[in-house]
Amino acid sequence: MLVSLYRYNPEADNAPFMQDIEVELPKGRDLMVLDVLNLLKEKDVTLSYRRSCREGVCGSDGMNMNGKNGLACITPVSQVIKKDKLVLRPLPGLPVIRDLVVDMSLFYKQYEKVMPYLVNDQPAPAIERLQTPEDREKLDGLYECILCACCSTACPSFWWNPDKFIGPAGLLQAYRFLADSRDTAQAERLADLDDPFSVFRCRGIMNCVSVCPKGLNPTRAIGHIRNLLLQRAT
């Protein structure tokens, strides 16, 4: 297999370049893309990428594999390889720090904008706040987000306005708190989102849905927010 790697070290390189490396895959075992990177790093320690849990829950190793964003640790080579070639690039649309490592500041900033925490202005009870299983079910498909940024960096609207459009990941979390029966700040949350950019720059392209490694659906959550904003306006 030929691995084509995006390489860039700002201290040594004038510009990014693609490095082609022939990799012998072990027989009878389907490696994950992260395994391939680890093998390459054993030979060339300068190769830089983030990784932590290696099981798809920490969100460190989001990257672009043969044109599609995903997590390297849970993507089998067999699933993405095309014509015996694997092209690995950093997540698109964010500044590259080095090799496959991108600067996530803008992404995190958009997350922080949506007040990603529970707000409840009532005094806390001595035990937990009660919530019916039906109300709790409304958080399924929302709370599981791992902040890997695969969705937002696959979104043309986010590429275009990363400073003003919250992006699918941030909006998924915005809705996670709007949908929580324990939250009392719905009006404030909606007011904060009610501008031409934060939500409405979503064009329903649905790249977010097609790349989410956790199978979540930000477009649907954004639709719910749109409805709430429209109800609020009428």
Partner: peptide, 11 residues
Amino acid sequence: KVFPTRSHTVS
């Protein structure tokens, strides 16, 4: 050493 939500508690 990692962004907080990448810590092993997540697993």
